[in-house]
């Protein structure tokens, strides 16, 4: 059971996946509640384009890809403000264009020595000390921002328009969030891969939402569930020998199915209980009002 822990690369990967899982679960709450679930999927593709560009112009991967992702997120937010374009369409246009640019560059410059397989599907064995440091720094910064901005982010997520009337600087909130999101996606790419980040961002908050009606509880629960899925997914991947990203996502999806079944059964039960409670003798209600 403790056999995998003797390998240092495994322990490093496990820590990375746990932190990334928690981080994605945390920011996922805000994404899901803004009904922008696909932004994770889209932005991870956009960041892939940015990664290629920064490789071509030989800029540091983290800096180049984060900047690229941030600009894409800002562009999406700005496009969404035009009333005629919905968030889903804006995400579709900007991120696929960005991804296509990456593909175009790859096919144009055939001298690539770097493998982009890891970026697409995630490779936990490739997590270096530097990657781990970047993950921890982004996670800590995100946690701090969302902690101190708790009230601002809550109001701006619940009702951005009215929040503005109440003086909440929603433009700043959006900008900071785009930055956090882009950084999260860049550091998560190595562990989860471009194609699987979306699930890590969407599943934990949805599971948490099924279990609570309180915002604060949802934030905490989603973070914990995300971290748990990261940990469980990597641990399992050692035994069943599948790619780390796929393993994390499959663990979260299983959790989702279980919780969905539980909450459906629970609401069924409470409905039948309520029906039973309503079956009281009619004279109990026959008291005249006056």
């Amino acid at each position: 059971m403790f056999e995998p822990f003797q390998y240092q690369f495994f322990v490093r990967g496990l820590i990375a996946a746990t932190v990334v899982g928690g981080l994605c679960g945390l920011i996922g709450v805000y994404i899901v509640l803004r009904r922008m679930s696909y932004i994770g999927h889209g932005l991870s593709h956009a960041v892939f384009g940015g990664a290629v560009v920064s490789y071509v112009i030989s800029v540091n991967f983290f800096v180049g890809a984060s900047l690229w992702g941030f600009l894409s997120a800002i562009l999406i937010t700005l496009t969404t403000r035009k009333r005629k374009i919905g968030a889903d369409a804006a995400i579709g246009i900007i991120t696929t264009a960005s991804f296509a640019l990456g593909i175009a560059l790859i096919s144009r410059y055939k001298t690539f020595t770097r493998s982009f397989d890891a970026a697409l599907f995630g490779n936990i064995l490739g997590v270096t000390q530097g990657d781990l440091l970047a993950i921890v720094v982004v996670a800590a910064a995100t946690a701090l921002i969302l902690f101190f901005g708790y009230k601002l982010f809550l109001f701006a997520t619940f009702d951005p328009e009215v929040a503005r009337f109440y003086g909440v600087p929603t433009g700043w909130v959006d900008t900071v969030f785009s930055l956090v999101l882009a950084a999260t996606i860049v550091v998560s790419m190595q562990v989860l891969g471009v194609t699987l980040i979306a699930a890590a961002i969407v599943i934990p908050p949805i599971v948490a939402r099924l279990l609570t009606d309180s915002f604060k509880t949802m934030v905490l629960l989603s973070t914990v569930l995300g971290a748990f899925c990261g940990l469980g997914g990597i641990y399992l991947s050692y035994y069943i020998d599948v790619s780390s990203g796929a393993s994390v996502v499959l663990v979260s999806a299983t959790l989702f199915v279980l919780v969905l079944a539980y909450s459906s059964l629970k609401s069924q039960f409470s409905v039948s209980q309520r029906r039973a409670a309503q079956r009281v003798p009619p004279q109990a209600h026959a008291v005249p009002y006056d």
Binding site: L33, K151, L152, L154, F155, T157, F158, A163, Y166, G167, V168, R209, T212, D213, S214, F215, K216, T217, M218
Partner: peptide
């Protein structure tokens, strides 16, 4: 949206 009555009322003092 997962908010309670109290959480909404307190938004007024954000």
């Amino acid at each position: 949206f997962p908010v309670t009555v109290e959480e909404v009322v307190l938004m007024g003092r954000t």
